[in-house]
Design a protein around this nucleic acid. Structure first.
Lengths: 203, 203
DNA sequence: CAGGAATAGTCATATCCATGAGTATCTAGG
DNA sequence: CCTAGATACTCATGGATATGACTATTCCTG
């Protein structure tokens, strides 16, 4: 029941259509959650059934009609309840880290390529976040906005997203440097592994 | 097929039992992945069936017998193949961020409590990671280890985990400061929401 | 005027992941 | 002696997530 609340939180600041939501939850600005269109449409349907959001049809001539969704009082209460429950710690879960973990046993050339790609991706998101933050601040300073700006929630999550991607970029660049240095220097140590069970005494 | 490779990567450096794996993959040192015992035992069984790991029974007298698993040549080849495939970008997915996103509309007292708790948790993991890195380095300097140390993979993922938790801690502390300042200062702006559908003209 | 991107949304399926409970043995503490 | 905790592992179930394919209309470009 996590996507549920992410959708509610996303609809707090503005009325959105399912399609607009999918844009917000995909690579674009998923600063606090990520989901695919199918999940979002399904979740919107459930949320509406449960009365936590209210949809209204908007007839359009230039393009297909759409339904805009707004959080109801019940939805806000549900979010309030959710915000008060204990939060489980969150963990990194990233294929790239799995690959780097095995750096001593696999080809580092491929790793370097992917770390470079990831660094570029992070850089792009950093740009997006920077721009987003500037837009929210307007002409105010960051300190000023943090104290008195409206919509502090989105601003804070955006700051986290920014820091996360900066961490990503810095780490990727460092890892690339390290792996390159090692390639040019000493040969990587490869441990051999067995192919079949070999019964053995206790350790 | 992600846990699969995470398990393989974890078994590269040392032969482990299922139980030891669960310890490594739970809060302790899940620097690159996280999983529950049930998933791990199931995955180990599948990996063994597929010949990617080999288990050997270790008879113990003081405690229940166990099975230690080792990566086979086929397993290493599978990891190699995996490491060469393109990596999807990874996204933050964190309940706490969802809650902070709705900070303008819910009680900030509860949020502050949870941010504080998360900061403490992050601090604890930072301590763990620091210790782990020191252990891996031994008496060498970090630069020295990065250049010539064995097991650079685990060291690099540990560095990422450390940076991630530092980012977590810093952000949580900052968010707490901001939310506290705002509480003592101005009253939070609460937007009202509707409870029923209200058909309306197009935007 | 043909083709592709963008808008707007849906269906089906398979795998992943989390939750909760349960088994059995041994050790250490009160 | 009794209980809690560590070791070592298993089963069942349901909800969350990812993948791939599909419908339909309109706008823009070549």
């Amino acid at each position: 029941m996590a996507l549920r609340h992410a959708v509610l939180a996303a609809l707090l600041d503005e009325e959105l259509s399912g399609y607009q939501l999918t844009k917000a939850f995909d690579m674009g600005v998923a600063n606090f959650w990520h989901a695919l269109p199918q999940q979002l449409y399904a979740e919107l349907a459930k949320l509406e059934q449960d009365g936590l959001i209210a949809g209204r049809e908007v007839v359009q001539e230039a393009r297909p009609n759409k339904r805009l969704f707004q959080v109801t009082a019940a939805g806000l209460a549900e979010l309030e309840r959710f915000a008060a429950t204990a939060t489980k710690p969150s963990f990194i879960r990233d294929d790239l880290l799995v690959k780097v973990q095995s750096a001593d046993h696999v080809d580092t050339g491929a790793l370097i390529a992917q770390l470079t790609e990831r660094a570029a991706f992070a850089e792009a998101k950093i740009g997006l976040f920077d721009e987003l933050l500037r837009k929210m601040r307007g002409d105010r300073s960051e300190q000023e906005y943090l104290r008195h700006g409206e919509r502090i929630g989105p601003y804070l999550t955006c700051l986290r997203g920014l820091a996360f991607e900066q961490g990503n970029r810095d780490w990727c660049e460092r890892a690339v440097t390290v792996l390159r240095e090692r390639r040019s220097g000493s040969r990587p140590a490869v441990r051999t592994t067995v192919a079949t069970q070999q019964p053995d005494g206790p350790e």
